[in-house]
Amino acid sequence: MKVKIKIGDDYQIFDYDGDLNISVITLLEKLDNPLEFSCSCLQGVCGACAMVINSEPKLACKTFLNEENMVAEYNQITIEPLSKFPLIKDLKVDRSVLFDAMKDCELWLESDSEYNPKDLDFEYEMSLCLMCGCCTEVCPNYKLGDFVGAQVAVAASKLVNQESDKEHLKSMKNNYKKRFFSHCVKSTSCEDVCPMEIPTQRAISKMNRKSVWRIWQLLNLD
Rank of each mutant, 00 (worst) to 15 (best):
K4A: 04
G8P: 00
Q12H: 12
F14C: 02
D15Y: 12
D15M: 09
Y16H: 02
D17K: 15
I22Q: 00
I22G: 04
V24Y: 00
T26M: 12
N33C: 10
P34S: 10
E36W: 11
G47I: 10
A48D: 10
A50K: 05
V52K: 11
I53H: 03
N54Q: 01
S55A: 13
P57D: 08
A60E: 01
T63S: 07
N69F: 11
N75G: 14
N75Q: 09
Q76D: 06
S83R: 12
S83L: 06
S83W: 00
S83C: 04
K84M: 04
K84H: 08
F85N: 05
F85H: 05
F85M: 02
L87Q: 10
D94V: 07
S96P: 02
L98W: 03
L98S: 05
D100I: 08
A101V: 00
K103A: 14
C105F: 01
E106M: 12
E110K: 13
S111G: 15
S113G: 13
S113N: 09
N116W: 11
K118P: 00
K118W: 13
F122M: 13
M126L: 11
G133R: 01
C134E: 07
C135W: 05
C135K: 01
E137H: 08
V138W: 07
N141T: 13
G145Y: 07
F147V: 03
V148L: 11
G149S: 05
Q151A: 11
V152I: 15
S157Q: 07
K158Q: 14
L159C: 11
N161T: 13
N161H: 15
Q162S: 12
E163P: 02
S164Y: 08
S164P: 04
D165S: 10
S171K: 14
S171A: 12
N175V: 01
Y176G: 05
K177P: 01
F180H: 14
F180E: 04
H183P: 03
C184T: 07
V185N: 11
S187P: 04
C190R: 03
V193T: 11
P195I: 06
P195E: 05
E197Y: 07
I198E: 04
I198R: 03
T200I: 15
A203D: 06
A203P: 03
S205I: 08
K206R: 15
K206L: 11
R214M: 14
W216F: 15
L219F: 09
